[in-house]
Simulated scan of single mutants.
Amino acid sequence: MSDKTSLAQRLRQPGIVVAPGCHDALGARIYEQAGFEAVYMTGNGLSASLLGAPDIGLLGMSEMVERGRAFAAAVEVPVIADADTGYGNLNNVARTVADYEAAGVQAIHLEDQVTPKKCGAMKGLALVDKDEHAEKIRVAVATRRSRDFLIIGRSDARIPLGLDEAIARGQAYAAAGADLVLLEMLQSEEEMRRALSSIDAPLMFNAVDGKTPPLTAAQFDKLGFRLLSFPISATLAYTHMMQRLAQHIRDTGSAFDAPTGTLAIGQYEAVLGLERYR
């Protein structure tokens, strides 16, 4: 682990860590400059930004790791990354862990879908047996070089298989050594309380626009979550902004005075830290 802020150490302190999601290193820098303690690299957003395609398992491990390396190089705060299903069998999981850790990422989550996976907010999810995924978690924990590289056991079982199965999977992944557990798509505060009280590990929550209860960070903190991400909010906002800008240019023949507003060139250069290159 580098001299950067340690996510593992921060999670041992009181208070929830909010790690907003983004699909590029520029977004990571903007979040860092806004004062967030960590950032989250979204697989959904990366599939959209790199391929213009939905999150259906089209990106490979090496493509994801290289983006994780770019994020980690761009910011001093910890980077948490989507590692999908581990990109194959136990050997693939071991390589995924080793490569992400070497890239400077500080945490990854591994999900229990079949390969190729889908975004957890999509319909028609198919999952592997929980014991098979628990073994992936054990291999991931055994492979990492530092205990400060965090393994997050994620289950997408809530929508296709129900809350009881999602909690049972979370318990299995915690028992396998996951540092945190992430249950996707919990649908109410009562479900969240049940999960928090039933799983012997800290819990992460992915707040997805229109798919999960619209709670604030303070509310998630009060419930007892330790890590919170808004994984695709930035990508949704970017898409909306680009649609409006495209229509404005189409309608007016100019990119100036866009309804979305723009930064001055000097402000933009400041975000990128141009001065340190001189």
Rank of each mutant, 00 (worst) to 15 (best):
S2I: 09
D3Y: 10
L7F: 05
A8Y: 09
R12Q: 12
Q13W: 08
P14Y: 10
I16F: 02
V17M: 03
G21K: 01
G21P: 01
L26P: 00
G27H: 01
E32A: 09
E32T: 03
Q33V: 03
Q33P: 05
G35P: 02
F36K: 06
T42I: 13
N44G: 15
L50M: 13
G52W: 10
A53F: 10
P54G: 07
L59Q: 00
A70Y: 03
A74E: 05
V75I: 13
T85E: 05
L90Y: 11
L90N: 04
Y100F: 15
A103W: 00
G104C: 12
G104V: 12
I108S: 04
E111L: 09
D112V: 06
V114R: 15
V114W: 12
V114G: 15
T115P: 03
P116C: 01
P116A: 11
K117A: 04
C119E: 10
G120T: 07
A121Q: 11
A121V: 15
G124D: 08
H133C: 05
A134E: 06
R138D: 06
V141L: 02
V141A: 09
V141G: 04
A142T: 08
R147F: 08
L150V: 02
L150C: 06
L150N: 01
I152P: 02
R154A: 00
R154E: 00
S155W: 06
S155Y: 01
D156P: 05
A157V: 03
R158G: 06
G162M: 10
L163M: 10
D164H: 15
A166T: 02
I167V: 15
Q171R: 14
A172I: 00
Y173P: 02
A174Q: 06
A176W: 03
V181Y: 03
Q187G: 15
E190F: 11
E191H: 14
E191D: 14
R193N: 07
L196C: 12
L196E: 01
A201I: 00
A207F: 03
K211A: 14
F220T: 02
D221Q: 12
G224H: 06
F225I: 02
F225V: 04
R226S: 13
L228H: 04
I232A: 11
I232K: 04
L236S: 12
A237T: 07
M242V: 14
Q243F: 11
Q247H: 15
Q247I: 08
R250G: 07
F256M: 13
D257K: 14
D257P: 04
P259V: 11
G261K: 14
I265F: 15
Q267G: 13
E269R: 08
L272D: 11
R276V: 13
R276E: 12
